[in-house]
Amino acid sequence: MITTVASKALPVDEELKIQKNRIEPENDTGSKKRISVVTGIHGDELEGQYVCFELIRRIKEQKENLKGIVDIYPAMNPLGIDSITRGIPAFEMDMNRLFPGDIEGNMTEYLAARIMEDLTGSEVVLDIHASNIYLTEIPQIRVNAVHEEQLIPLAKEANVDFVWVHGASTVLESTLAYSLNSIGTPTLVVEMGVGMRITKSYGDQMVDGIFNLMKKLGIWEGKTAAVRQPIISRNPKDVAYLNAATGGLFVPAVRHGAQLKEGELIGRIINPLSGGVRDEVRAPMDGMLFTIREYPIVDEGSLVGRLLRTL
């Protein structure tokens, strides 16, 4: 059933609505266990759109196996999705810096607070992101070290390739995931693919992971695919950030996800005006290239990739 979680009238003849689709068992099982899938907080990240579609499609095919509630929120930031805008248009604000929101606050704070209210109490929430328009990511879950204990067991079941436990940061305290985790609603942040695009294979991988999670939580009784055993990284030294030493056009020399040896060429930063190579980006250690630059123009400092040390 599609319902409206929050709505506000816009100035000219339009209602802003945040909607969800609740799928419940055909026969009341008595279980109130609920999994929530959230995406589209950043309006230019679309990978989660396909996940929502495919998840609903597959559940409907075998509805008899559904034993709990599945809530799907495909568009947390509808105005951003419509206008290829990462933040909330007109406000120039990152929606994922507004949580837990304020029910008495301005429009954006109100929307954030209503979303929080609606998600609270889920067995698990998956907040699906798609990196940004500059970088492609392999399917991964990012976990704040503060909530590591509760989240790692769930993250292991989600069929991702990599679980990245990162250090606490004050700025991240205003994200949806941090806010929900802080009040006891386990929330996993998924990053996969790239902004403004759909990577179907990653979407399918994620849907398999969601079914597996549902099964572990007693929400699904149907068949599920075997899930991948993710690499779990807790040590910041295991991740190398590859930042451009100079501006130019980044042309990769290897595939995303490649296993690289120290010193191996990852790509070149070239100057199309002079025909020269401004810099060569090489692997600083043996590892897997889990992030790679998608948008070719780089400034000095732009991230061109991230490497996870071979353990």
């Binding site: 506000k8 009238a9 816009l10 100035p11 000219v12 007109a90 606050g105 301005n106 429009m107 109100y110």
Partner: peptide
């Protein structure tokens, strides 16, 4: 010249 609802 335009405002949203709930705006300070």
């Amino acid at each position: 010249p335009l405002t949203y609802a709930d705006t300070a």
